[in-house]
Design a protein around this nucleic acid. Structure first.
Lengths: 216, 216
DNA sequence: AATTGTGAAACACTTCACAGCC
DNA sequence: GGCTGTGAAGTGTTTCACAATT
């Protein structure tokens, strides 16, 4: 069996959604072709990095011409599996959680929160912002029932690990963790943590020690 | 003039707030000394990385003993400037913005949102969740008046760049950008972007292509 | 003439492995 | 004996610079 994309570097993978968004914008502006240097200018990523990133997926461009915008959009759509809508569960409907419920990634055509859990929910699913909110007691069965792979975790720190264990047990594949807890999880679960206090403190540290400013 | 910390690697800097939090926990649990391997176990960061990180700040530990927890906490408190409260402004009080207002980093003793801006605010400052919310018309003068260095940006994409220009003009040093826009800013402003859709899509991509799971 | 795709160099970060010190 | 601090090796990422191609 031929492996088309033997190993995409992590750094490259993290940039794919960004490439996809920018290319969509260019496509919407009816731009037909684009060079790595034009993209570089718009995205503030070095042109050589862009070419190297793209090259991991094979020869997507044409020498002396650049890249076909439509083709690239289509290519990345598939690579990112943007065709399929991904259903997501939200666990913890506090301040941050309800902001996510209301927002529900409208802009983001492929991701949708379809159910939530919170102690103020019920076994039957009390509707909040149009999404059923269940009581944590039925978490495992509902996650399984909805076939959820991805969870956004916005619970209080003290229950984060416990909830994670339950989620791992019912086969959840990815957790976007907004809790400051360093979650322990089996290899079957990918955890990505966004710790808002840490982000703020890091920014404070960098500005106080005023190194060269930049996106990170 | 002696430069004590000639160059702290970016990767190390980003871990400092995390070290600080864990060390505080150990201090609160009345732990006197700690070895890099104990910390490693708790934080899931390689022990050699921890020792290397600490060593950038000089010889903080003692061979054959480990590190004095209290001393380290105190050291990092100073390094992170945790003594001083940092006042922060919030620009854009939508779903995400109001979640931050309500949350206001209670847990986080050194960061506090002290004012906010939104079209639904007034020139005099309408109170929301105990914080004055001003109209964007008075943004520049109020930022200057409060002496704000740090801003959390949760405005709609279309005005993000414009607001950033204003902020840069009145001397803001750091922006925590929750907008999907790649902001252009002068070197005097450090921008750190957290793009929630990108985070979700990246997680989807990683789980679909199921590489080794991990914190990132 | 323009622009890709890529070897090779440069850089950044992590990890190994151990001398040196407590 | 235990544990740090660090040279050196290893790994991952970015950038340079240019031959190849349209």
């Amino acid at each position: 069996m031929i492996e088309e994309t033997p190993k995409i570097p992590q750094a490259t993978s993290k940039r794919l959604p960004l490439y996809y968004r920018f290319l969509q914008n260019f496509a919407n502006a009816n731009k037909e072709r684009i060079s790595s240097s034009e993209l570089s200018e718009a995205m503030k990523i070095d042109a050589a990095t862009i070419r190297r990133d793209f090259s991991h997926f094979g020869a997507l461009g044409r020498k002396g011409y650049g890249y076909d915008v439509r083709y690239l959009v289509e290519f990345f759509r598939k690579a990112l599996d943007e065709g399929e809508e991904t259903d997501v569960a939200l666990v913890g409907v506090g301040n941050l959680g309800s902001a996510f419920l209301k927002y529900n990634f409208h802009k983001n055509h492929n991701t949708r929160i379809v159910l939530a859990f919170d102690p103020k929910g019920t076994a039957e699913g009390k509707m909040i912002s149009g999404i059923p909110v269940y009581h944590p007691d039925v978490l495992k069965e509902k996650i399984a029932e909805y076939g959820i792979d991805l969870v956004i975790l916005t619970v209080p720190s003290k229950v984060a690990q416990e909830v994670t264990n339950d989620l791992a047990q019912v086969g959840v594949k990815g957790i976007l963790n907004f809790t400051p807890v360093r979650l322990a999880a089996p290899d079957s679960v990918r955890v990505h943590t966004i710790d808002l206090s840490v982000e703020l403190q890091t920014l404070i540290y960098f500005t106080k020690n005023d190194e060269k400013a930049s996106h990170m």
